[in-house]
Design a protein around this nucleic acid. Structure first.
Length: 281
DNA sequence: TCATTATGTAAAA
DNA sequence: TTTACCTAATGAT
């Protein structure tokens, strides 16, 4: 259940395990039997993460493309692999290491043009040096769609998931429903810089931490949060709990088919306007 | 032991 | 906008 930083860590891990090695591939579950047969015996050149997509580039030009989706998972180890338990879509082995993949949304072999097409449909990835945040902002600023949905749209920003988007909107003081066209250039600069920083840190630590030092449990005298993803956050999955900054109850609502969370005080509905409310009727 | 939930996406309607 | 995907962890019973 990954956001972009998880895929970057997997890419680095798989590269360390298998790069330069001849890899044996199989599909104990059977659903990737054909692809595994084609792949088996190839030498891994390098791995790459692009957004939430993982690529293994093999000699001969073919690439293994994996997208974990909501519940895909990798497991790995040294030496002899264990007998497959459950639905193992793909198993890779060398003399030294083994790797199992379960439950992915995508596990397929791609030709070089197909890899290009994949990358062409992805937006700016905050973890990549070749990202173009200006292009992303050009899409955002002309859209009436809520920022929450725009920042989750992988064709605009790649690698962002629910936690990063939810938290970055809190840090920017913007409600998730704010239309893209209301995002100022300064607002976008703040959001992009936050994504680069927070996602970069998460690649190093393996968890998502979004809370400024001054609001950490030690600084505030509150108990630390133990959550599945392991990090300290402001609003993600904190519905009805007090805001770390102002104490107001965190709110939750369905938005674009996902759970969105925000603080009613720290993320005001909109800028205070001098224009009086229009009277109906 | 069963039901629900989950850091996601694509296809169907 | 809704449904399906199809795994594992968590929470309820």
């Amino acid at each position: 259940m990954p956001e972009g930083h998880t895929i970057y860590r997997l890419a680095a891990r798989h590269q360390a395990m298998f790069a330069g090695e001849k890899v044996l591939a199989s599909s104990p579950q059977g659903r990737f039997a054909e692809g595994a047969a084609l792949l088996s015996g190839a030498v891994l050149d390098r791995t790459e993460a692009y957004g939430k997509h993982l690529l293994h580039h093999y000699d001969g030009g073919q690439a293994l493309h994996v997208h974990l989706g909501l519940y895909g998972k990798f497991a790995d180890g040294d030496g002899e692999p264990p007998a497959p338990v459950g639905q193992v879509r793909l198993r890779l082995t060398t003399d030294l290491h083994w790797l199992d993949l379960r439950g992915p949304t995508a596990c397929e072999l791609l030709s070089p043009p197909e890899v290009e097409a994949l990358q062409a449909r992805l937006g700016a990835d905050p973890l990549r040096a070749d990202a173009d945040p200006d292009e992303a902002y050009a899409r955002i600023r002309r859209s009436p769609t809520p920022l929450f949905a725009l920042l989750l749209d992988q064709s605009i920003v790649a690698g962002t998931g629910l936690i990063f988007v939810t938290e970055v909107l809190f840090r920017a003081g913007l409600r998730p429903t704010t239309p893209g066209r209301e995002l100022s250039p300064e607002g976008w600069r703040k959001i992009w810089a936050d994504l680069v920083e927070l996602m970069g840190t998460a690649v190093g630590t393996g968890q998502i931490d979004t809370v400024y030092d001054r609001h950490l449990p030690e600084a505030m005298g509150r108990p630390p949060r133990i959550d599945r993803h392991g990090g300290e956050v402001y609003v993600y999955r904190r519905a009805a709990q007090p805001c770390h900054v102002c104490g107001a109850g965190i709110l939750r609502a369905d938005l674009a088919g996902r759970n969105s969370y925000w603080c009613p005080t720290c993320q005001p509905a909109r800028r205070a306007r001098s224009r009086p409310k229009r009277q109906k009727r």
